[in-house]
Design a protein around this nucleic acid. Structure first.
Lengths: 138, 138
DNA sequence: TCCTACAATGGACAATGTCTAAGTCAAGCG
DNA sequence: CGCTTGACTTAGACATTGTCCATTGTAGGA
């Protein structure tokens, strides 16, 4: 949204048609798109945009903390525009559908010092796996 | 170990030199290898083993539940021979090192029905991210 | 020992992501 | 308003990881 564009401009991001389009695509649908899906949608709005630019722009958005990378399977990374609201993911093992969920506890607190092996732990990623209603029925 | 080979034989697995080598590699080091790393180590023991066979065998071991697939980044899948002891992973964001850890809580229980959206949830995967001691210091 | 179904091989192919050299353009400056 | 400049974009080659298939080999039973 313009929010996002505003923030980026404020950080000295040079605004180009390509970047605007990528940001719009991410903001338009709050689903988790792969880089290629983002590219496909971007091409629909700006036919000459290149794949490299989409990858670059996504990478920059991730660095800036505006977008999260999600790796649920080992196919493509997915990009999650919902970076400012902490949440986890529920993935269908059959069809790959992804839902955002918000469990109760705080998994970070569940990792005692004795299990940290000197690591500076800064983040947790929780992925629930199962079958979505459609795949359960089918 | 022979344990693993025993179990596989008991399930009617046809025993070949290639499969034995792959099982040995996985069992030898309790670290998390990528498919190509498994292949490299297997080649050292049995030079003519092919990449396809390693991939096939790893896939079968996963299907049989003897080995777990771990996807921490979007590089290669990693294979975790520690399938019979539930655990989670602690990953260094810089160098990629992986440790097995055992947090206290049960994240499955932290996902209320209202957040399950009709899914049949069967599994959770928790990945802690941070910096390992070496990378924290460096 | 011989048969046969299952397994292995190797090489082509597919999917995703990265890099580079050259051209293009946003935005500040005069 | 028109330069200038360095950041941005492009196209396509390349790299990595994984999958498929037709052919050849072999484990294990009869």
């Amino acid at each position: 949204m313009s929010d996002l564009l505003e923030r980026l401009r404020g950080r000295g991001w040079r605004m180009t048609a390509q970047r605007r389009v990528v940001a719009e695509v991410l903001d338009g649908e709050h689903v988790h798109l792969t880089a290629d899906e983002v590219h496909a949608r971007a091409v629909a709005k700006l036919p000459e945009i290149s794949r490299a630019t989409v990858y670059n722009t996504l990478g920059e958005l991730v660095s800036l903390g505006e977008v999260l990378e999600v790796t649920t399977d080992k196919r493509a990374k997915r990009y999650d525009p919902n970076a400012h609201r902490p949440h986890h993911h529920l993935v269908c093992a059959r069809c790959g559908a992804i839902r955002d969920v918000r469990p109760k506890g705080n998994p970070l607190a569940d990792l005692p010092d004795s299990e940290r092996f000197g690591f500076t732990v800064s983040d947790v990623e929780v992925t629930y796996r199962g079958l979505c209603p459609d795949c359960t029925a089918g």
